[in-house]
């Protein structure tokens, strides 16, 4: 297989880094080579933020950054950031935005990133259990149950 490219984007504080950490952790645990890139610093002051996850089996991932026009998936947590990042999406790539989720059913709006991961999960063969293990590893225990609900809302909604 070739390298799979997933780009997460949003504004500072929308859970972009966390979501990319979950995706990276999931594929790492499944034995893929993986690289993850992100931007720190000024970005935490509410500005645009993006994080790239690239993974492959049987070959090495080289650059940690997804080249323009090569993202297989673009997962955006804030609608305003679609236009900022859409040049990264390859032709025929999958764009996921909050409009794909019934946000009114989210018990905690902060869990939107987890719901988006649920939506994204439908495009891969990883099991719900595998996703749950990765989610639980990256979130404190008090969020586990709420995350499971948010994830399933995205996955089944």
């Amino acid at each position: 297989m070739s390298v799979v490219n997933v780009k997460f984007a949003g504004l500072g504080g929308t859970g972009v880094i966390k979501a990319s950490d979950v995706m990276a952790e999931l594929v790492f645990e499944q034995g893929y080579d993986v690289k993850k890139a992100e931007v720190h610093g000024m970005s935490q002051r509410g500005g645009s933020i993006a994080s790239d996850v690239r993974f492959a089996k049987g070959e090495e991932v080289q650059s940690p950054m997804i080249p323009t026009g090569e993202a297989d998936y673009l997962v955006v947590f804030d609608e305003t950031q679609v236009v900022v990042n859409e040049a990264f999406l390859k032709q025929g790539g999958v764009l996921l935005t909050p409009a794909d989720i019934d946000v009114s059913k989210l018990e905690n709006v902060k869990a939107l990133n987890v719901a988006m991961l649920g939506k994204l999960s439908k495009h891969f063969d990883f099991t719900v259990d595998q996703w749950t293990v990765a989610l639980n590893k990256l979130f404190a225990e008090k969020f586990h149950e709420g995350n499971k609900k948010a994830f399933m809302l995205g996955r089944e909604g």
């Binding site: 509410g46 080249p67 900022v84």
Partner: peptide, 25 residues
């Protein structure tokens, strides 16, 4: 990045494409 390295190898001296501006901090 990968695209810029491709351009260096190709001898492309055109200015970088201007990205869509994100929200500043």
């Amino acid at each position: 990045d990968v695209n810029r390295v491709r351009r260096i190898i190709a001898g492309d001296k055109n200015p970088d494409p201007v990205p869509v501006k994100g929200k500043p901090p």
